Amino acid sequence: MNQHIKRFITIADFLGEVLGSNTEIILHDLTNYEESIVYIINGHISNRKIGGRPTDLILEFIAAEAEGNKQFISNYNSKSIEGKLLYSSTYFIRDDENKIVGALGLNSDYHEVKKSLSFLTSLLPNYVDDKVLSLNNIKENLNTDPQELTLNKIDAILNEFDIVPNRMTTDEKTEVITALNDCGVFNIRGSVQEVASKLQMSEPSIYRYIKKIKS
């Protein structure tokens, strides 16, 4: 197996864990067209096996992009041997000389998912699973707005400590500001101003607490 292809085996395993049994992950070594399929997860999706050949799309891409820089084709429909419609994306692996030597394909079958979703939708708004709406298990907030990140973190910590800002003791202020510092809040530009406003303190006071924590 080509060395560039081997590096993608663990990525294929990772994608298999993340995407689950409805998505086929297939790895082609395109230095050997006769038996290009060298690794496959959830092969039941397309019923292909190790040792199989590349598809028409792969061959057409190689012909059109052999000297180009395009790296992938995403979000297109494909069809299995049985005529099943799949949702697909393919990433092409190039070597150090920019030659296409492999491909990592994702082929998803959402037929059963759509049926389940249709059933659940028919029950709404009369039924909503509490687990679906629960925010307690969120470990990462993907909102990249600095102000929102700061305010959300302050609120989370205040709720954790169950503290009302205008009734905080010196020790409680130290605990809260220490927790905010440990979370990296003060690495965000403008965070001191937001923390001061939220905790009903002056900005110089916040800086004094930070200096004390770090000393």
Rank of each mutant, 00 (worst) to 15 (best):
E82T: 15
V164H: 10
G43M: 01
A179K: 02
S108C: 06
P204L: 05
G43E: 14
N141D: 14
I9G: 03
Q200W: 11
L158M: 13
K211H: 08
L180F: 09
K214S: 15
R189M: 05
D130R: 05
E82I: 09
E160S: 07
V195M: 00
I157W: 01
T31Q: 10
A64F: 02
I206N: 00
P146D: 06
L30Q: 01
E97T: 13
H4V: 02
F92P: 00
I206D: 00
G190F: 04
T23P: 00
N187G: 15
N22R: 10
E172F: 09
K6Q: 10
S205Q: 14
V128W: 02
R208T: 15
A103Q: 02
I25M: 03
T55M: 06
P165E: 02
T144C: 04
A179W: 01
N47G: 11
V38P: 00
Q200P: 02
S202H: 12
P204W: 08
R53W: 01
R208V: 15
T178D: 14
M1Y: 05
K70H: 10
K131R: 12
R48V: 08
Q71N: 13
Y33A: 15
Y209Q: 14
V176F: 01
N152R: 09
K99M: 02
A12H: 03
N126H: 10
N69K: 11
E175W: 03
S215W: 06
N187T: 13
Y91W: 10
N166H: 09
Q200M: 15
E60A: 14
E175T: 06
P165W: 04
V192S: 12
Q71I: 13
I40P: 00
S88P: 07
V192D: 03
F119M: 12
I210F: 06
F61L: 07
K49M: 06
T10Y: 07
E24S: 07
I40Y: 00
E35Q: 12
F119S: 13
P54Y: 03
N166Q: 10
K198T: 13
D155G: 10
R189T: 05
T55R: 10
K173H: 13
S78M: 06
I138N: 12
A12V: 05
A66C: 09
S118P: 01
Y39H: 15
P165N: 04
K99T: 07
A156S: 14
L15C: 12
Q71E: 15
L158T: 04
Y209L: 13
P125H: 08
S122E: 14
Y87H: 15
T144D: 11
G20W: 03
V132K: 11
N126V: 14
P204I: 09
V132N: 04
H4Q: 13
L123R: 13
N75W: 04
G184H: 05
D56S: 11
M168C: 14
S116E: 12
L85R: 11
S202I: 06
D96P: 01
P146W: 04
E97C: 07
K99Y: 06
N143F: 08
N187M: 10
L59G: 01
L85H: 11
Y33E: 15
A64K: 08
S116Q: 11
N32Y: 04
G20I: 12
I73C: 02
C183D: 13
F72W: 09
T31G: 06
R53D: 03
